[in-house]
Design a protein around this nucleic acid. Structure first.
Length: 728
DNA sequence: AGCACGCCGACT
DNA sequence: GTCGGCGTGCTC
């Protein structure tokens, strides 16, 4: 009887297509195949195979493709992801099936060279240096040999042409060396040792197999500097000892040399890494290695979640609260949540690590859905910094200045003691608003309705939402008055000016994402700050994450109130996390650091909790507040409507949705200023985001609603940002 | 994702 | 009168 294969194609298609399986070809679910689609050939994955008497009018499968098949659990993950995010199944599949293009597949092996024994025809000085190095007769990579001899590659090439060196094709370098779980047991504090033992007992219960309890999700919560990494490294080591694979997910920015170095210290080798910057060739080999079970530990960004692991035994999500885990284009998903889902489907433990967990994770831990391990103190007896408020209503900075006198004094004392001070202001550029003193005109973005931010270094006015930029005018574009534009409020560039005036002979650096010279220079600059090559650092949120600054003893927060009124339902949470992290940077060795927080509202719950040094207080208050307001993660159904440039349509949708027969608990309409950047960069004129705990009910509800709602021009996308726990 | 079809504005 | 913009729909 002829068999029919249902093949899912990685395009925006919601259903698998049926193809005839030619005689002699035996297909199983998960196999990667090539199929005709319209006028062209595409790859697809077998989703189902059935015997059917008819169906001979189907087009036949072209053939099998050399690629690791998708396991049952990975296919389940794709189905789950599609259903949950309301994305077409094919789009979800595309996440797990980014095949490299044909050009990249072709095998270009590395070339090794060694001395042939034949003397060179023209023995120049450079050539002799190379031959001296190669004299031992061992095989080296071409570039390695050139580097070792201190000459350029062309000298080596010349010697190959000459015949003095012989070139041999080398076997490709292994994708990753096997990590040794017992390479170097770093000394753990008592608290760390206890936490890692608890974690291992939870993650790898002694009774494996039938009747064993379901693999848990564990929240590993530890204050900044408590050594969470060492704790979960022990769990990774245990997974490897048991012959399983482990995946460590990190926000893309955190994939630093610093972290990889720490891994190498513990496990003897650098881990295999997976992120968007990995070349197609390496990607494919790594994928194959992962599928064959040869690569035992992968450290990767969110897309690593869709690798075809043969035997996944542990997933760690580091800094689980990071917004970078959210994919905001194409299929919208939250990698932390999908990690939990994949853990369930693979029946493998998942560890969520953070110093400042997200509210939803905290709630899940409190409700007992996640196990909870807490590291309450810093490693090595280091104390948390002392945090004090500077009430800006009482301690005013001088006119035209933004740093209050107590903070100026603290900075002076710090650098006089030979330490480093950090001034934190989460605002890029020179001034967030420019206005004309003659006519009062305020410079606004022509696409969004936000103020244009002056960037003095670039001599431009820039929109921080859409990237629109114009030259800073000499005369007002409205009234024509010359040289009368006034910058209002501070950005980091303006603070740099103030600091230069206050401390003219000190080394000052400004670190923000528009650092001249790009990411590479920035990385080097962060390192030099860590090495102590600077007295005062002025930085945006970029300095709050990733890098450690061991010489830092003072953190000054210049405007703690930024972000508290943004209209984002997560504003309080985000602000608390950011401030907690940046103030936690202060401290050097045994000496506790100091943090001074400039604020106009020291009694605001977020600021008060931060000042009290009691994070538990913040979480309790925020959880209670959200529960009362019906916001996520508690809201039964809350809609968040974002419109890039048709706010009126969004408003109409929001109002109508609120009046619906079965209204959501809350409707929020956000204008472009508050809308996520990705939405505005995308071509969508209109977009609807939904936050709820009931994604599945909502799917039908919203599809139905969108048919009846106000007429919307352009694309409408529905994305869901919720807690997956309730559907597992 | 591609590619075709189709319906309104500016051109040889 | 056509060329071509991209909005919409289809691919087993």
């Amino acid at each position: 009887m002829p068999s029919v294969a249902d093949i899912l194609i990685p395009l925006a298609l919601d259903n698998a297509y049926s193809y005839a399986v030619p005689a002699g070809l035996i297909l199983a679910p998960g196999d990667v195949v090539q199929v005709p689609l319209g006028p062209r050939e595409t790859v697809g994955v077998v989703w189902q195979v059935s015997e059917s008497p008819g169906g001979s009018n189907l087009r036949p499968v072209t053939g099998r493709v050399e690629a690791p098949p998708l396991s049952d659990s990975l296919r389940e993950l794709v189905d789950w992801l599609a259903r949950y995010t309301l994305a077409p199944k094919g789009s979800a599949l595309a996440m797990a099936l980014r095949l490299p293009d044909e050009a990249a597949r072709s095998e270009t092996s590395r070339i090794g060279v060694r001395a042939s024994g034949k003397p060179p025809a023209r023995p120049t000085a450079a050539r002799m240096k190379v031959l001296a190095v190669a004299a031992d007769g061992t095989m080296r990579g071409k570039s390695a040999l050139a580097k070792e001899a201190g000459v350029s590659l062309s000298v080596v090439d010349g010697l190959i042409d000459d015949g003095a060196l012989e070139a041999v094709a080398l076997a490709p370098e292994p994708v990753a060396l096997p990590p040794d779980p017992d390479h170097a047991r770093v000394p753990l504090s008592e608290a760390q040792a206890e936490a890692s033992q608890n974690l291992i007992d939870l993650a790898f219960p002694s009774a494996e197999g039938e009747g064993a309890p379901k693999a848990p999700t564990v929240l590993l919560e530890g204050v900044t500097g408590s050594g969470k990494t060492e704790v979960y490294f022990e769990a990774v080591a245990e997974a490897v000892r048991r012959g399983h694979q482990a995946l460590i997910l990190m926000p893309e920015i955190a994939l630093t040399a610093q972290f990889l170095g720490r891994f190498a210290e513990r496990f003897g080798v650098r881990p295999a890494t997976w992120h968007s910057g990995i070349g197609a060739k390496r990607r494919e080999r790594l994928r194959a290695g992962v599928a064959a079970g040869e690569v035992s530990v992968v450290v990767g960004a969110r897309s690593a979640l869709f690798l075809p692991f043969a035997d996944l035994g542990l997933v760690v999500v580091d800094e689980e609260h990071e917004a970078a885990y959210k994919q905001e284009d194409g299929v919208h998903y939250h990698a932390r949540d999908m990690a939990v889902v994949r853990g369930r489907l693979e029946n493998c433990p998942v560890v969520l690590a953070s110093a400042t967990p997200s509210i939803e994770t905290k709630v899940n831990a409190e409700k007992g859905r996640y196990a909870h391990i807490v590291l309450p103190e810093r490693f090595g007896g280091r104390r948390l910094p002392d945090i004090h408020a500077i009430d800006m209503r009482l301690d005013k900075p001088e006119k035209g200045r933004f740093i209050a006198p107590p903070l100026v004094n603290a900075v002076r004392a710090t650098i006089e003691a030979g330490d480093q001070a950090l001034l934190f202001l989460n605002r890029r550029g020179y001034a967030p608003l420019t206005l004309c003193r003659a006519c009062g005109h305020r410079y606004q973005c022509r696409n969004c309705s936000t103020w244009l931010v002056e960037h003095r270094f670039r001599r431009a006015l820039v929109c921080h939402q859409c990237g629109y930029a114009e030259r800073r005018p000499e005369a007002c574009t409205e009234c024509g008055t010359f040289d009368n534009l006034t910058p209002c409020g501070p950005g980091v560039e303006r603070i740099a000016e103030e600091v230069a005036a206050l401390f003219p002979d000190k080394r000052v650096i400004v670190l923000s994402s528009d650092f001249p010279g790009g990411a590479e220079r920035l990385r080097a600059e962060l390192q030099s700050v860590a090495d102590g090559d600077c007295d005062i650092v002025i930085g945006t949120q970029l300095v709050a994450k990733g890098h450690n600054f061991p010489h830092l003893t003072l953190v000054g927060v210049l405007d703690a109130d930024i972000g508290l009124t943004s209209g984002d339902p997560r504003a309080a949470e985000r602000t608390f996390q950011l401030l907690q992290q940046v103030t936690g940077r202060a401290g050097r060795g045994e000496r506790p650091g100091r943090a001074l927080v400039q604020t106009y509202q020291p009694d605001h719950p977020v600021i008060a909790a931060l000042l009290s040094g009691d994070a538990t207080r913040f979480y309790e208050e925020e959880i209670a507040a959200r529960e009362a307001a019906g916001l996520p993660p508690f809201g039964r159904l809350a809609a968040l409507i974002v419109s890039a440039n048709e706010r009126d349509v969004a408003e109409a949708h929001g109002q109508a949705l609120a009046r619906a027969a079965e209204p959501p608990d809350g409707v929020m309409v956000l204008g472009p200023a508050e809308a996520p950047l990705a939405l505005i960069r995308g071509r969508y004129r209109f977009r609807l985001l939904v936050k709820t705990e009931r994604a599945v009910d909502l799917q039908t509800y919203l599809r139905d609603w969108l048919k009846r709602g106000p007429k919307v021009r352009g694309n409408v996308k529905v994305a869901i940002d919720v807690d997956p726990q309730s559907f597992l």
